[in-house]
């Protein structure tokens, strides 16, 4: 399997610069968003109270208060911006894994060497997971280091609508880990769908379009269904249902975290098997 390791290593190396740019960009969005806690937390809470659509889009289910540090980070970043950005990266990686290199013509030459299609399929899937994981870690470290600058680790006193006050605890490192893990997981699932479509068809457009469509359609279905109640029976298809409903960053890990990983395993295995059975595209 030394050939597979070399392919994995080279694929990462070819994406070294883009990995740095993506990771730094995602982390920068998180840090900049976190910087607005003191000035934006309260107004975010008022907006959320104004309508169920906004609440749904911000992932503000019962008991999540955006005036708290964790609630703010969840509503302003970890429930929307972060997973979307990580999804975009994951879909780009899942598309590039097989279909992208096939369309560029570089996959064929690798396959003329003494390496199996299985080794390439596995090396590329591992590469996709690795780069996504690196981005998640960079984001975690960046937010964890900068959080004290914005008082996110400190307890806050919240004044309710009736004038009563309460104290909410500050952000914990564990919440950042769980929030990042959930975003990583939901993104990985989308990347795996791109991988599956690309491996099955060898076409970049199908992989990118299919996976992006799945992510966006799932989001629209989930958020609008939350508002109207229509098509609620279909929302199990949407990865956003467990992601936003569970709000693991605030409420803690649930077994639902396993769904995207299971989806990833199924998609990668299916993509690998379909890749073995088809012609390479020109």
């Amino acid at each position: 399997m030394s050939g597979a390791f070399e392919i994995y290593r080279r694929w990462l190396r070819d994406r070294r610069r883009s990995t740095i740019v993506w990771s730094v960009s995602i982390a920068a969005v998180s840090v900049v968003t976190a910087a607005f806690f003191s000035s934006l937390g309260q107004s975010l809470g008022e907006n959320a109270e104004s309508g169920s659509t906004t609440s749904s889009m911000l992932g503000l289910s019962d008991g999540i208060d955006p005036q708290t540090p964790t609630g703010f980070l969840w509503a302003a970043n970890y429930s929307n911006q972060l997973p979307w950005l990580m999804m975009a990266l994951a879909i780009a990686l899942g598309t590039a894994a097989i279909a992208g290199d096939e369309a560029d013509g570089t996959l064929e030459y690798v396959l003329s060497k003494p390496v199996t299609r299985s080794a390439i399929a596995m090396a590329r899937a591992a590469g996709m997971v690795t780069i996504l994981f690196i981005s998640a870690i960079v984001n975690l470290v960046a937010v964890a280091i900068t959080a004290p600058l914005f008082d996110l680790y400190d307890s806050v006193t919240i004044t309710g609508a009736d004038g009563s006050t309460s104290t909410a605890s500050g952000l914990t490192f564990g919440q950042l880990v769980v929030g990042g893990l959930a975003a990583f997981a939901v993104a990985l699932g989308s990347g795996a769908i791109a991988y599956l479509l690309g491996a099955a068809s060898g076409r970049k457009g199908w992989a990118m379009g299919g996976a992006s469509g799945f992510a966006v359609a799932g989001y629209v279905l989930y958020t609008l269904s939350n508002v109207t109640g229509d098509l609620e029976f279909l929302t199990w298809i949407s990865p956003w249902r467990w992601f936003i409903d569970d709000a693991m960053m605030v409420n803690g890990l649930t077994w639902d975290i396993l769904w995207p990983f299971a989806l990833t395993v199924v998609a990668v295995v299916a993509g690998w098997q379909l890749f073995l059975r088809r012609d390479l595209q020109n």
Binding site: D104, E108, P114
Partner: peptide, 12 residues
């Protein structure tokens, strides 16, 4: 394949 040297018409 380890015993084959291949040059495609359009090397990428």
């Amino acid at each position: 394949r380890s015993r084959i040297g291949y040059l495609p018409g359009d090397l990428n």
